[in-house]
Amino acid sequence: MKKALLALLIALMLMPVALFANGNTEGGSSAATVNYPKGNMDFVAPAGAGGGWDLTIRTVAKTLADTKLVTVPMPVRNAPGAGGAVHLGTLQAKKSDDKTITVYSPPIIFFNLNGTSPYGFRNTTPLARLIADYAAFVVKADSPYKTINDVMDALKKDPKSVKIGGTSAAGSMDHVQFLIVAAAAGVKNLDQIDYVAFDDDGATQVMGGHIDLFSTSLADVMGLIESGDLKALAQTSDHRIGTGLKAEIPTCQEMGIDVTFQNWRGLFGSPGMPEYAQTYWRETLAKMVQTPEWKAMLEKYGWDNVYQDAPDFEKFLEQTEASYKQILTEIGMI
């Protein structure tokens, strides 16, 4: 009797497995109909909540919902790990999935080039470039360095004399964006410059005088610049940005260093995303960037509109990769 019951129990438990083994084979191919999107989308920020990627994709989701361009739910999920490399890895298991939309920026190129991840932007489906933010180099208010040129002159004399800090790993964005500028300013021995990576408190470290210069994105330190605790020596756009104090920050070009660096952010689908999904999102995003709601958001966060549709975006990615590669080779990373 007991044995029979046990067998029944096991049979019952295995039933769903058997059921789905069938269900699985039926499901797959029938999805390729015009009826898209259907069900929940899966919006992913490949970093923790509260960062730049998170803010970008949440803003996209909110704008699309507010303007009713997309009517299916677009919940945002955070999948942090290794500066976004972990999520790119998991994305590889979702080939030709039509639900996942994720956001990336220069690190998708850096972590591939510097060997952190075997995958790069070629293992995704680029959909559109949307916005750009710029690098800023900040020092504490009473720093002896008054201009970016002072910093570069000091580095030319002794590459160890200015300690640079940032919040991405060595060989990734905050590090390389500074080196690109230093190279353009004619600093030699780029590999001799000390760069220290912090987890998230680089701003307090430069305020406390523990590092000399903090390489970051402008949006992250505006609060401390406005309060007068920090001073931005330069930003890397080709034009002045924003209004008020922000607009007073000189560009590198104005300071005689002919270089720009753009922290662009774009949306990507999973590798081999089906045609219908690609078309849908390219068209939808093209519409979104025209809406007043989106423009208001850009204004609010001080982002530049750098919209590019997929084909141009892909070309841009190729070119950018080549230029990043050059600088990484120069500092001996690759």
Partner: peptide, 18 residues
């Protein structure tokens, strides 16, 4: 960090000025 993100989305810039 999450709370700060929320503040940003509410249009507030956290910092000494806040």
């Amino acid at each position: 960090a999450v709370m700060m993100g929320a503040l940003l989305m509410l249009g507030l810039q956290p910092g000494p000025k806040l």
